[in-house]
Computed example of a mutant assay.
Amino acid sequence: MLKLSDEALGAVMMALQKSLMEQSDIVPVLKGFNFKVNEEDELYVMNPPMVKLKANDNG
């Protein structure tokens, strides 16, 4: 049985944060994940989403 690695769980949380910030659908991000199995028989995400923050122009 496979489980999510801590990294994979973090990638899911980043995908959720990204979809909330951009008000976009999370499904394409999740479907785009490339997985591999690590040494502990856990799923590892090879391409976690990147969340970009905008600089604050208020000083």
Rank of each mutant, 00 (worst) to 15 (best):
N38Y: 06
N56K: 12
L30P: 09
E42Q: 15
E42H: 02
P49S: 06
Q17S: 08
M50T: 13
N56I: 09
F35L: 13
K54T: 09
K54E: 12
S19I: 06
D6F: 01
V27Y: 10
N38I: 01
L20Q: 12
N58L: 11
G10K: 14
S24K: 15
L4S: 10
L30G: 04
N47R: 05
V27M: 11
M50F: 03
N34W: 00
L16I: 14
E22N: 11
Y44N: 05
E7M: 09
N38D: 15
I26T: 06
L53T: 07
G10C: 04
V27E: 14
P48D: 04
F35N: 01
V29I: 15
V12G: 01
G10Y: 00
K18G: 03
M13Q: 11
A15R: 06
V27N: 08
V27S: 10
V12L: 14
E39G: 13
M21V: 07
P49R: 05
G59L: 15
N47T: 03
E39C: 01
L43Q: 04
K3M: 05
M50A: 08
I26K: 05
E42R: 06
A8C: 10
M13D: 12
E22A: 10
V37S: 10
L43H: 10
V27L: 13
V29D: 03
P28K: 09
N56T: 08
K31S: 09
L2M: 11
L20I: 14
L4Q: 10
L16W: 02
V51C: 10
M1L: 09
Q23M: 08
M14P: 00
M21A: 12
L2T: 14
N34F: 00
F35D: 01
M21R: 13
M21Q: 12
D25C: 07
M21D: 15
K54S: 13
D6Y: 02
Q17H: 05
A15S: 15
K54V: 09
A8S: 14
V29P: 01
A15I: 12
K36H: 04
K52Y: 06
V45D: 03
A55D: 12
F33G: 02
S5D: 09
Q17V: 12
A8H: 10
A11M: 03
